[in-house]
């Protein structure tokens, strides 16, 4: 071991100090640019809107979005956010559970897997939003339809992703388990599934985004509340401030949910100690 660990040396060499300082400076610079670009964007947007260079009726403007945001917050913002988050989470959880279960079945029986292959390929490439009207007619124009849409979009991806992970489990591990006489169930529970914990979380990260796509698409078609509803409603009555504010809130909600999955992954990894 030739590495010099900072903890072990209270006095650092001047080269090391310079190196660490340089690293910190670069990080700060990156952060400053990230914030700076956003602030400048908002500044010029507001400026051009006030100068009349861009039409704030069509493109809105930051100050109006902010005041819309404030009035929404006083009124029913939480309801709309809550509805969208609820629908997304239900679709997400269902998608993960059903998708993983299907992947287990397909891993278990290569016969069933071979039979279902063409169906999976077609279903995977089909834009699920096209099924919207069918879904509404079958499950009714309500929350169920929206959740169903989220499920339709995320399910097949989960199945394929998990199945792929299961199939790429280290063969030698499986062989080792068989030398102890492991049954197929044991091989799955003790080798294949733990081996694919990171696959599962990668699929969760994709899924939370896809579920949100499904929910917003669903809310565009049928809804009485939710962020998708606000966006469509705002568009129909030409309230671009409302549309923009909703889109920004949606972006924040999406980022938070994604971070939630990342946090969950960290906890699970510590628990499972990968």
């Amino acid at each position: 071991m030739n590495e010099v660990h900072d903890k072990e040396y209270t006095t650092l060499s001047s080269e090391r100090n310079a190196y660490l300082k340089g690293q910190k400076r670069t990080q700060r610079l990156i952060f400053a640019w990230q914030i700076g670009i956003l602030l400048q964007f908002l500044f010029f947007w507001e400026l051009f809107a006030r100068m009349g260079i861009i039409d704030s009726f069509i493109l809105s403007q930051p100050s109006r979005i902010a005041s819309t945001f404030v009035s929404m917050a006083k009124y029913d913002l939480l309801l709309h956010v809550g509805v969208t988050v609820y629908e997304t989470l239900v679709g997400f959880v269902l998608g993960v559970i059903i998708g993983t279960a299907l992947a287990v079945v397909l891993w278990w029986s290569s016969f069933i897997s071979k039979i279902s292959e063409p169906y999976l390929v077609v279903l995977n490439s089909l834009p699920k939003i096209a099924l919207g009207p069918v879904i509404i007619i079958i499950v009714g124009a309500g929350t169920e339809a929206i959740i169903f849409m989220a499920l339709a979009i995320s399910l097949i991806v989960t199945v394929l992703e998990m199945l792929n992970g299961f199939r790429h489990t280290n063969r030698e591990y499986i062989r080792m388990a068989s030398t102890f006489g492991a049954t197929k169930g044991q091989i799955f529970l003790k080798v294949v599934f733990p081996y694919n914990i990171s696959t599962l979380f990668n699929s969760l990260k994709i899924n939370i985004g896809l579920s949100l796509v499904g929910v917003i698409a669903g809310e565009f078609l049928v809804s009485k509340a939710g962020l998708g509803y606000l966006i469509v409603y705002g568009g129909q009555v030409f309230k671009m401030d409302l549309v923009m504010a909703s889109v920004i809130i949606l972006a924040i909600v999406a980022a938070l949910m994604y971070q939630g999955v990342v946090l969950l992954q960290k906890l699970a990894m510590r628990w499972y100690s990968h």
Binding site: N170, E172, Y173, R175, M176, A177, T179, F180, G181, A182, Q186, K190, V191, P194, Y195, I197, Y272, S273, H274
Partner: peptide
């Protein structure tokens, strides 16, 4: 087998008990 095939998410202790668990 040729490779040790220790499961990398298990500690050495739990790896050693793997065969007992399976059986």
């Amino acid at each position: 087998l040729q490779n040790d095939n220790l499961l990398d998410w298990r500690t050495i202790y739990k790896n050693v008990l793997f065969g007992l668990e399976i059986r």
